[in-house]
Design a protein around this nucleic acid. Structure first.
Lengths: 330, 330
DNA sequence: CTGAAAGCGCTTACAG
DNA sequence: CTGAAAGCGCTTACAG
């Protein structure tokens, strides 16, 4: 059974293809009687317009690409944020009546594929989720003249973005620890080539400096193992520390383990605060205090920004505030 | 700067549109010299074929839809499996040179949208991820005559699927506990309207029956809270139990908490085994023994099944085996 | 308000 | 092996 076309519907309804098209597209300049007879035919035949034909002539696809650019073992893709972001974007696009093509760019090869696809006029715009500020994709895509919005700050100047207030979030964590009476507050950083990591470190540093305290810094790379290792090193270098701010939850979880092995009680001896508030943060023992990144809200904002860009609206960067979720570890 | 068309490339290369088309599509019946001059023009102009035009005439889109059908607070979407499945599918489709349109069906309204979209000839096939065997979508989509494969067993008879060996996984867990010398092994079930939940319960029951032991069953609904509550009830009903098999990890995590509060040591007093091996399973204290569902492999298998269906190949159901990941809790 | 006609950018028999 | 022509299924000025 072949799919019916506009022409078949028109014949059935006894009107022109133009009229059927107008009814289908909800134009108001159609006589009610024509409208009715067309709708009748549409229902009887189960007609649904062919997408490709429509896209070809309108030059729109009502489809947006979400490109997740990250190495296979990278930070974005493997962590729980992936799911939160993708789902929020999907929901928001559905509300806007758009479709989502998901593309992973995990290698140079797939990056090329993404560029080819984008160049093929399959989508109206691109939402880029890339953690590395140095990712070449934003610039490459933006060069194609297609609307591009980034889920993070990028090195490409002209790409609008939505970003977390990372420094503010770190400040939130440190202030909280100070209020709890902690005096020797260390931090475990992410990989410093990432914006996020640098900004969180800056927030930590500035807050301590403003209160006349010194920073105690250990380097991590956002993995659980690196958090455990950094914590070991911190305990060795500064046995008297009484608090740790980890730049993400995975490292905080690693730190918890090290503290447990070292016989330090959390939070009595050492308070721990993480960042991101991933699901696992509430499963640890003790449960983990964390800076909540409003991933879903950020995703929603990014979609709105992209839609605005496509419609020629404003494209000012959006900075998302964080909040602190206090649990047992601090 | 307008995108160049086939016609422009043909003019530049001094050949016909037909020849350009043939070169672009890698047909072998082209003279080398024509091939070269066309490729030259393609590169100079940065030509990429318009997808819509191509789709219209070929009646293929090289795009597959992944439909995740579940209530907003549902089991599939909110849990960590979502990300694993979506990523694995995406990778596999990329290898096959296909694109992925992701659709969430969280309400009747969005279900309708999905059906409309599928009917619009935007995709060549559908991979359906729905936990509820009673979901109306498989049947509805399959009725459209488009290739559909389900990530789970469904009530629609004619929809090929890939499923986990749930009963086998449960048996694995119970045998393991028996080998550890446990004698009073309880279970916490998932919501019994789900295939998964029933099959895991059956596996538990049969294994115990085969060894002459009785079942101790508490009902849960796959949430952490329900696991905690079921565990409380089990302890009350049968204070001497020495092991629990929870039908998923979230419930197992809830059970761990209840046991901790009740002063039972894990695994010394009560051994705990979960199912799914989500990421959080390795973060708990003690870390959780779990039946590993090979989600990525299952996703890969589902993609292969769908591609096979599209090509008119075999479409036999695939059953994925599980393995047990033994950690500290048992 | 309605219809006939052109055209979107490709692919594909069909001749040669 | 190559090219001219038809056609995929829509939308959209343009007349009326």
């Amino acid at each position: 059974m072949k799919r019916p076309t506009l022409e078949v519907v028109a014949a059935r309804a006894g009107v022109s293809k133009s009229s059927v098209s107008r009814v289908i597209n909800g134009e108001t300049t159609v006589a009610p009687q024509i409208r009715d007879v067309v709708m009748q035919a549409v229902h009887e035949l189960g007609y649904v317009p062919n997408g490709a034909a429509r896209n070809l002539v309108t030059r729109r696809t009502d489809t947006l690409a979400v490109v997740v650019s990250d190495p296979p073992q990278g930070v974005v893709s493997d962590d729980p944020l992936f799911s939160a972001v993708v789902r929020a974007v999907s929901r928001e696009l559905e509300i806007a009546g758009k479709r989502l093509v998901l593309m992973l760019a995990e290698s140079d090869q797939s990056r090329t594929r993404v560029e080819q696809y984008i160049a093929g006029a399959h989508v109206d715009g691109v939402l880029l989720v890339a953690l590395h500020g140095t990712d070449p994709l934003p610039a490459a895509l933006s060069r194609q003249g297609l609307p591009v919005v980034s889920f993070n700050r990028t090195s490409a100047q002209d790409v609008p973005y939505v970003a977390l207030d990372n420094a503010g979030g770190a400040a939130l964590a440190v202030h909280h620890l100070l209020e709890r009476g902690r005096r020797r507050i260390a931090t475990i950083t992410g990989p410093l080539e990432l914006h996020e990591a640098r900004e969180r470190l800056d927030g930590y540093r500035h807050t301590l400096r403003d209160t006349g305290r010194r920073s105690i810094v250990a380097l991590g790379d956002f993995t659980r193992g690196s958090g455990a290792e950094a914590m070991r090193q911190l305990l060795e270098d500064d046995p008297d520390l009484d608090a740790v701010f980890a730049a993400n939850d995975l490292m905080a979880i690693g730190a918890l383990r090290t503290l447990h092995q070292a016989g330090r009680r959390v939070p009595e001896d050492v308070a721990v605060v993480g960042f991101d508030d991933i699901e696992a943060a509430s499963y640890t023992t003790p449960s983990l205090t964390s800076v909540r990144s409003p991933m879903a809200d950020q995703a929603t904002a990014a979609v709105h920004l992209l839609l605005s860009l496509i419609d020629g609206g404003p494209t000012d960067p959006v900075i998302m505030p964080n909040e602190l979720v206090v649990r047992e570890s601090s």
